[in-house]
Computed example of a mutant assay.
Amino acid sequence: MELNIIGAGFGRTGTLSLKLALEQLGFGPCYHMHEVFARPGHAELWRQAQKAGDADWNSLLAGYRAAVDWPPAFFWRQLAAHYPRARVILTVRDADAWYDSISTTIFPAQRLPLPPEDAPLFHTLVMPREMIRVGTFGDQLDRAHVIEVYEKHNAEVKAALPASRLLVYDVKDGWAPLCEFLELPIPSGAFPCSNTTQEFLDRVQARTP
């Protein structure tokens, strides 16, 4: 099975809703940060990928038809090059609303104390802060800087890919633009909506050592 869909959008832009939508449309299973927590050893592999700047993608993403959210979005260039037939979806939202969301979910979670390095959850918890807080935002989390990084990232994705391969997508727009891009009929049910701020915080609480 080869990757068909690459999600280039940062977390908190509706990536979990997109994952669920893609799986409903037949592009499943879809990789997401949740998979890092569910699959032993994957956090270590992503840490190695960040250090090397690349990975054995066919092995790391074996069995998946799509990959969205961090960590895949961190490697969108490498994935787009490795899977030249895959389509790319850049999830976006209003920059200030996005910052309000990430600053009350992901950033606080990444400030929590880490367990000892020999603890089972160490790699799983340290990988996201190495990749997101430090690797993406340079450990500088004020609004102006974070939004600047977000907007620069989105601009780079748009500039790098042809319109035929890229969908710039706000999940609030529902099924229509997604299904048109994927050349699929629109499902009869409602578009999935998941990973509210409270749901995120509840998961963080459950994982806190």
Rank of each mutant, 00 (worst) to 15 (best):
A62K: 12
R85D: 15
A81T: 13
E117A: 14
L60H: 06
A62S: 13
A80F: 13
L90V: 14
A67T: 08
D96L: 10
R65S: 10
D94L: 12
F74I: 07
D54E: 02
W57Q: 03
A49Y: 08
E117M: 06
R85P: 00
E117V: 11
F107K: 00
A73H: 04
Q78G: 04
A52I: 05
S103I: 12
W76Y: 07
L61D: 03
A67K: 01
Q48C: 00
F75E: 02
S103M: 12
R87Q: 15
F74Q: 03
W70D: 03
L114S: 02
I89L: 08
G63L: 07
P108F: 06
L114H: 00
P72N: 04
P71V: 03
H82A: 11
N58S: 11
P116E: 09
L121T: 10
L114W: 09
P71W: 04
K51S: 10
R111I: 07
L60D: 02
D69I: 04
Q48L: 00
P115K: 02
A66F: 07
P71D: 04
V92G: 07
I102H: 09
V92K: 03
R93F: 10
P72M: 01
A109W: 13
A119S: 14
L79V: 08
A62Y: 09
D100T: 12
F74L: 06
G53D: 07
P72G: 05
D96F: 13
E117S: 14
A81Q: 11
W76H: 06
I89D: 05
P84C: 08
A55Q: 11
F122Q: 05
A62D: 12
A55E: 11
P115V: 08
Y99A: 05
P84H: 13
R85Q: 15
P108E: 03
A81Y: 14
D96R: 13
A86T: 15
V88D: 05
Q48A: 05
Y99W: 15
D69H: 11
P71L: 04
D69Y: 09
Q48R: 00
R93I: 09
P113Q: 01
P120Q: 07
R87P: 12
I89C: 06
P72V: 02
P84E: 10
T105E: 05
P116H: 07
R47A: 07
D100W: 10
T105S: 08
F75G: 01
A73C: 15
R85M: 10
N58F: 13
A73R: 02
Y83D: 06
F122M: 00
S101P: 11
P120H: 04
Y83Q: 08
S59I: 12
A86F: 15
T104C: 01
P113T: 08
A67G: 13
Y83C: 09
D118F: 15
I102A: 04
